[in-house]
Design a protein around this nucleic acid. Structure first.
Lengths: 246, 246
DNA sequence: TTATATTAGTGTTACTTTTACACTAAGCGC
DNA sequence: GCGCTTAGTGTAAAAGTAACACTAATATAA
């Protein structure tokens, strides 16, 4: 693959030079190689109704017509991958300033029967409170699904969601990623529920509180949350200054 | 960005349909959007001379002429990203069956002044013993460098290597990734050195041995390694069947 | 106003894991 | 057989994790 090698940004150009973008582009087009399409998909996850849910869109055309898929779109020439992901996010949910992380890049030939598509997948965590704004929740073609009860998915999207969940779980206990699923103020019980829902198992209340509080990452707001007919709970807020620890 | 959205493999196609690859391709070409170039770069790391080193190639043309860069090349239309990475690997080192993992995808516009390039970066770990075959070690345009003493690097490659090292370190203690840097048989001291070199700090000999052996992941070969004028060391081999633990 | 229902909030003990630390064993060369 | 060098081993203190049950504060209904 001499041709491709010399064109590489990282090539040591043993066999030729392209001194300008034009020269490069020309050489490239003259070769037999087409360029793959590059898309960015965004796995948007949120906690809704005590469940970890993901936003999916329904496909209306071939291939996989009628099946559900992770929302995404082409990367434009002048935007970064992350910017493209944010754009997708806004198109679907009209939120901004959310947690966004690059997950993985999927690019097997044949994963899309139409053409070669390389998809850079991001995942976003949305706090359920701010999310309420968006009305499209129950639209026929955009819906939230439980990560634990997914419909049949288009392309390799089942694999992608599986991977997203694994990444989220893996990061739970050595990062502060979980806070992104909660509103600014929350009770310890609510935080514990986030962990329980994502890890899919019960945690010990006392041990959980002890551990979280010992990191110093939570700040008591002084306020209390009163709901239902029982003792009110302290409201805490995440203290980013202490991020380093947990 | 309605156009891109409907073209997306994941689109819900609110505003139009493309029923075939051809229709899609046509629509796409008719749009104002070009496709970015997609390359795969491979960070090849190995332990050489008691140091963690990386293979770099010297650029002979604009941009970054004369600077060192991570080897890479274009992805071909019919090969997977991983296949492209393996191809790069073989071109530079003529080894195969090495540890290879996708690291991250870099795609900021402007990272390559020639054109929009999206680079999927892999990293490979090479066992120094098998590596000796390759002669090109001291060639003027392909060389090994210490990860702790890098030359000025082209593009955003300094950032990429920093990220690769962070990933390698992060995975050291909950995976068996380190074994990929050693030959099939090795002594506990050699394994400990791998950890020390990558973590860049001394480890306690007794605690290290205790921990590694307690996982059951090592198999005593019965053989011993005799070198120098001192007691010979037991040779172990990695037992993949027990992989699950460490 | 008192009883009841419901979730918030709190400590101690056993167990496991991690850390710190120093001497004997086996080979080689002289 | 002495000296040099690296291999190989155990124990105790400390830290972290896991298991477990009762009192506190509110709302509602009797």
């Amino acid at each position: 693959m001499e041709q491709t090698e010399q064109q590489s940004e990282t090539s040591n150009s043993k066999h030729g030079e392209q001194q300008t973008p034009e020269a490069k582009a020309h050489h490239y087009d003259a070769s037999k190689y087409e360029r793959p399409s590059v898309t960015v998909d965004v796995v948007m996850m949120s906690l809704r109704k005590g469940d970890l849910q993901v936003l999916l869109v329904k496909r209306r055309s071939w291939p996989y017509e009628g099946m559900w898929a992770i929302p995404g779109g082409f990367v434009q020439m002048d935007e970064s991958l992350e910017t493209a992901a944010k754009r997708e996010l806004q198109e679907e949910t009209s939120v901004h300033d959310v947690y966004l992380e690059q997950l993985y890049t999927f690019g097997d030939p044949g994963r899309d029967p139409r053409t070669r598509v390389i998809t850079v997948v991001y995942f976003a965590l949305l706090d359920s409170e701010r999310l309420q704004v968006r009305a499209a929740d129950d639209a026929a073609d955009v819906r939230w699904f439980s990560m634990y009860n997914l419909p049949p998915l288009a392309f390799d999207h089942a694999q992608i969601l599986e991977y997203a969940l694994a990444r989220l779980r893996g990061k739970l206990d050595y990062t502060t990623i979980a806070f992104n699923l909660l509103p600014e103020q929350f009770t310890l019980r609510e935080l514990q529920r986030v962990y329980e829902i994502i890890l899919h198992r019960k945690l010990d209340k006392r041990n959980f509180r002890k551990k979280v509080l010992s990191t110093g990452i939570l700040e008591d707001t002084g306020a209390k949350k009163m709901e239902g007919t029982h003792r009110p709970a302290r409201l805490y807020r995440f203290n980013p200054a202490v991020e380093a620890k947990l």
